[in-house]
């Protein structure tokens, strides 16, 4: 999907009008010799940016704008950094199409407000768990209906806690990562190269994995769904 269907666009516009109160920057990285989905991703993000006057859209060349890429920690393309009043560490690698469009919208709304929308008790528990930097990669595919739940939850954690950064990775575009992380089902999460889990887990279980990753404890489980 590179264009947003009219009915979905209307819903998103309504949500943006209600919830997008502060500016958001969609910072997109592509390159001159574009990757297979770069053009479609570019078009999709440009369309989304037009759905609210509070969204800015910036395009950088991954090669020519190396410094900018390094500043935002971008290592592959197509890449999107979703920036609000500050950089909360929300990244999207690959096209946010299919069900992943929802994750993109949730990310935009979260960084706009800077409010994770988590209950205060969860924020407290998270603060005790993420005592050192935790980089979360969530591997998804556009047809996975439960993936946005995990992705949006991870985005909430990143907004709530500056030690957490999140990459959503659309695996069809990064087959080497499928092999590296042995992705056979989605969603799958890899935290700090030490901790992995498969499937959708509730918030407290996710926080437990974050704590393990922060402490450098290797682990991995495979809940169903």
């Amino acid at each position: 999907m590179s264009e947003v269907p009219e009915d979905i666009a209307e819903t998103v516009v309504k949500r943006f009008e209600e919830e997008l109160k502060k500016p958001v920057r969609l910072v997109y990285f592509t390159q001159e010799m574009e990757c297979p989905f770069c053009a479609q991703t570019h078009q999709l993000l440009e369309t989304v940016a037009k759905l609210s006057e509070n969204i800015g859209f910036e395009v950088y060349d991954f090669v020519k704008d190396k410094e900018k890429a390094e500043e935002l920690g971008i290592e592959k393309i197509p890449a999107l950094a979703i920036l609000g009043g500050k950089d909360y560490g929300l990244r999207f690698y690959g096209i946010p199409s299919g069900y992943e469009f929802q994750t993109l919208i949730e990310g935009i709304i979260l960084v706009s407000s800077g409010d994770s929308q988590l209950p205060s008790e969860a924020v407290e528990v998270l603060a005790k768990a993420a005592t050192s930097p935790v980089h979360i990669q969530i591997f998804v595919i556009p047809t996975c209906p439960v993936c946005p739940v995990l992705g949006a939850m991870a985005f909430q954690f990143a907004v709530a806690n500056s030690n957490i950064s999140v990459d959503i990775v659309e695996i069809a575009e990064f087959p080497h990562l499928v092999n590296k992380y042995n992705v056979i089902g989605t969603p799958k999460a890899a935290l700090n190269e030490t901790t992995q889990f498969e499937g959708l887990v509730p918030p407290m279980q996710f926080i437990n994995f974050i704590q393990q990753a922060a402490q450098g404890s290797p682990t991995g489980i495979s809940p169903t769904i």
């Binding site: 209906p145 439960v146 089902g185 169903t224």
Partner: peptide, 26 residues
Amino acid sequence: RKLEVPGSDTYEGKGVQFCGLCDGPM
């Protein structure tokens, strides 16, 4: 419901799957 045969638990998430939509493209 899980399939209770040898190998079912061992290979859960490694080829024993429950969601065609989530895992089919793999």
